[in-house]
C-alpha cells in the first residue's frame, strides 16, 4: 500500500494501516502549521529547548515515524515473512531428503547441513545473497525517496524543520533497518530451524579443522554481520537512484540491475583488474569466517570497498536531494 491511500481517512482497519495513516497525517499537519513549526502535536519541543534540541527532537521523531512506517508497511512485512520462509523450507526439505539419494547434493554448504544445523545459517545466506537480498535492498532503498515523491508526500515531509541532508539520513536509516531486519530474520530462522531439525555440533571448517559449538555460533554471527555490511554499498546506490525519480519502481529496478551487472562483470576474467573494486566482488568473502585463520585483512577489504561505494553514492544522493526542486 502507498502513503497516498493512507492519507485518506476512509482507509483503516488493520494496525499497519492505522500506523501509516497516523504518520502521514502527522506529516500533513505541516501544511496548516507553516514551515517554522515542529510537525505534530507535541508543541512543547519547540517551547522548552533551543533550536538545536528542537531539531534533534524533530529528527528523532521523524526517525521513529520512518521506522514505524517501514516496518509496519504490509508489503515490507510480507517481504520479510517470505525471506524468513526460505531457511525454514530449506531446512525441512533437507530433513526430508536426508536419507535419500539426494542427500548431500547441491551448491555451497548444503551437504554439511544435515550434519550440523549451524551450516543452515551459512547455506541460507549463501542462497539469498545473489538475488533475494539485493531485491530487498532495492525495494527498501529505491522506494525511500522516490516512493514519497510519487505519492506526493515528499513536499510535506520537507516541512519538518530539519535540513534535507538529515532527512536523507533518516530515509537511509529506514532502508538500512529493513535490510538488516531481512538479513537477521534469515539468519535467526536458519539458526532455529537448523537447531530443531539437525541439532548443533562442533563446526567443521573449510580446512577440515573443527571448532566448538560456542565458537561456531560466534562465527555464524560474524557471517551474518558481514553479509549485512556487504549490502550497504547497494543501499547507497539505491538511495541515489531514488532521489533521481518520482517513479519508485524505476529506482528499484535500476538498483537490481546494478547488482546483476556487477555480478556479471565479476565473472569476466578479462576485467580482472577492476574486480576488487566491484560492489559485489567481496560478497562471498563471508566464507572467511569458515576458515581456520580468519584474516582481518580480507574482511577489511570488503568493508573498505563498501565504504567507498557508500561514500561516493551517498554523497551523490545528498548532492541531488539537497539541490533538487521538490514539487511533489
Amino acid at each position: 500500500m502507498s502513503r497516498a491511500e493512507a492519507t485518506s481517512p476512509a482507509v483503516g482497519g488493520s494496525a499497519a494501516t492505522a500506523t501509516a495513516a497516523a504518520t502521514a497525517a502527522s506529516r500533513a499537519v505541516g501544511t496548516d502549521g507553516g514551515p517554522g513549526r515542529a510537525v505534530g502535536a507535541d508543541v512543547s519541543d519547540t517551547a522548552s529547548g533551543g533550536p538545536r534540541t528542537s531539531r534533534a527532537r524533530a529528527t528523532a521523531r521523524l526517525l521513529r515515524n520512518e521506522l514505524r512506517l517501514v516496518l509496519g508497511r504490509r508489503r515490507n512485512q510480507l517481504l520479510l515473512a517470505l525471506l524468513t520462509a526460505v531457511p525454514v523450507l530449506l531446512g525441512i526439505m533437507l530433513a526430508i531428503v536426508s536419507d535419500s539419494a539426494y542427500a548431500g547434493q547441491g551448491p555451497g554448504f548444503i551437504s554439511r547441513v544435515a550434519g550440523n544445523g549451524l551450516f543452515l545459517v551459512v547455506t541460507s545466506l549463501f542462497l539469498c545473497l545473489p538475488f533475494l537480498l539485493p531485491l530487498v535492498v532495492s525495494i527498501a532503498s529505491g522506494d525511500a525517496v522516490a516512493g514519497e515523491a510519487g505519492a506526493g508526500t515528499l513536499r510535506y515531509l520537507l516541512l519538518v524543520p530539519i535540513p534535507r541532508g538529515r532527512l536523507l539520513l533518516v530515509k537511509a536509516a529506514g532502508a538500512l533497518v529493513l535490510v538488516l531486519a531481512g538479513v537477521l530474520l534469515v539468519a535467526a530462522a536458519a539458526f532455529l530451524t537448523g537447531g530443531l531439525l539437525f541439532g548443533f555440533g562442533d563446526l567443521t571448517l573449510l580446512s577440515g579443522q573443527s571448532v566448538g559449538t560456542g565458537a561456531g555460533v560466534v562465527r555464524m554471527l560474524g557471517v551474518t554481520a558481514y553479509v549485512a555490511m556487504s549490502l550497504t554499498g547497494l543501499i547507497a546506490v539505491g538511495l541515489f537512484f531514488s532521489t533521481l525519480t518520482e517513479v519508485a519502481i524505476g529506482a528499484m529496478a535500476a538498483t537490481v540491475v546494478v547488482s546483476v551487472v556487477s555480478t556479471v562483470l565479476d565473472s569476466l576474467p578479462q576485467l580482472a583488474a577492476i574486480h576488487p573494486y566491484l560492489l559485489t566482488h567481496h560478497w562471498f568473502d563471508f566464507a572467511e569466517f569458515l576458515r581456520w585463520d580468519v584474516s582481518a585483512g580480507v574482511l577489511l577489504q570488503g568493508v573498505a570497498v563498501q565504504a567507498a561505494w557508500v561514500a561516493v553514492f551517498g554523497s551523490l544522493a545528498w548532492a541531488r536531494f539537497t539541490t533538487a526542486d521538490i514539487t511533489s
Partner: peptide
C-alpha cells in the same frame, strides 16, 4: 522532482534563501 536548474518554487528554505550565494552556486 525536476532538474536543479529550474527556477525554485519549492517551500524548502535552503533553495529559496533570499541572501547569500545564489541557488545555482549553492548547487
Amino acid at each position: 522532482m525536476t532538474s536543479p536548474d529550474r527556477t525554485p518554487e519549492s517551500t524548502d528554505p535552503i533553495a529559496t534563501s533570499p541572501t547569500g550565494p545564489t541557488p545555482r552556486t549553492r548547487a
